[in-house]
Design a protein around this nucleic acid. Sequence first.
DNA 1: AGATTTACGGTACGGACCGTACCCTACTTG
DNA 2: CAAGTAGGGTACGGTCCGTACCGTAAATCT
Lengths: 206, 206
Amino acid sequence: MPERPTGPPAAGQTRRRGAALEDAILGAAADELAESGYAGLTMDKVAARAGTNKNALYRRWPNRLALAVAAYRRLATTIQPPDTGSLRGDVLEWLRQANRYWSSPQGAILRELLAAAGGTAELLAQLQEQSGDAAAAPWLTILGRAIARGEASPEALHPRVATVAMTLLRNEFVVRGAPTAPDEVLVEIVDEVYLPLVRGRGLPPA
Amino acid sequence: MPERPTGPPAAGQTRRRGAALEDAILGAAADELAESGYAGLTMDKVAARAGTNKNALYRRWPNRLALAVAAYRRLATTIQPPDTGSLRGDVLEWLRQANRYWSSPQGAILRELLAAAGGTAELLAQLQEQSGDAAAAPWLTILGRAIARGEASPEALHPRVATVAMTLLRNEFVVRGAPTAPDEVLVEIVDEVYLPLVRGRGLPPA
DNA sequence: AGATTTACGGTACGGACCGTACCCTACTTG
DNA sequence: CAAGTAGGGTACGGTCCGTACCGTAAATCT
């Protein structure tokens, strides 16, 4: 429970406006998300918690989902691509980080939001940016280093190929609904799929 | 609009019971799903359409989602794995079938249900069975034939490896929310990921 | 056949929420 | 200082879920 500018205005002022109010609303919405998830986030509760009313909310976001997606930004912590010195180490560590994230309360909220935003490509895109795990760039970075070390084939430097491991892991969560992916699954993704794939046909199995 | 035992009971009888009633309810629910999707399916409408009332519904299913998942079974059409004579042909055709399905109204409903069932592993599992695309068995069959032809390495005969193509395609829909995957995406999945992966290190690129 | 139990049908209702509308008031702007 | 804008308070329509009651048809028992 971080000390956020939530709740009624400080005793000094009387009425917040613009950015200050918006900030309070997003803070309240983020707190509600953290406490009750998306399913438990109601416009009335957010308004009350922010010390305002629903007018101020609907003036800024067209509906509950849009507000929740905007508020999720405050909860999302970005995970950093590792640099362990080996491709296998990098990929496995990166997957483990992602696994921890998806298994965390934040990850559960993200899954709720992804499900709710299913029909709205625009909101989905916002979530993708924030969760960041699908970003091809860090994967290409990791792969680039591996290619320089001779651990992967240059042909693997392709967005769809590079992100395969993360896509498979995400599939475990989104489609299978698993609360956590066992570490064996991560290892299997890496050893049975990802490494054989990026090594290509030109490199030895080891 | 197939002629289903929907609506009020036939003039002859007076009151349906048991299986007959259950069948009418599922039929009505399936029709509602087809017309209005899951979002538009309400318990009141289903009851009215089946010529009964909500009691009969809640006596059989604990909530709206469970009823919808049960009713979806009537809409789901199973797609058959192809046998074109070449691995590339099989995989591409299979993906194209799946792409058509996910893009169809039925696919849209399935996506809605998947999203709504996100938290309930039990219902998710039921949906998986019905959609059937995730089943490893047909993929292993296709791969088995390919291995016999020398088009794939025996090491690829592994559930996680075999189903990679379908998983990547499904990802396009569930996570990216795309209404349809362009054919280029399917080709890319096949040529950049799947074929290189299952060929393994022992076989020539062609 | 008559009595008993079970399952339907009809209906009503509590409760939760979303989204909107009004009106008054504080703050900002010119 | 006047006019315009954005908050605050509040109420309400509307939808829909899930539950409760109660009378009655149909199955089951004796």
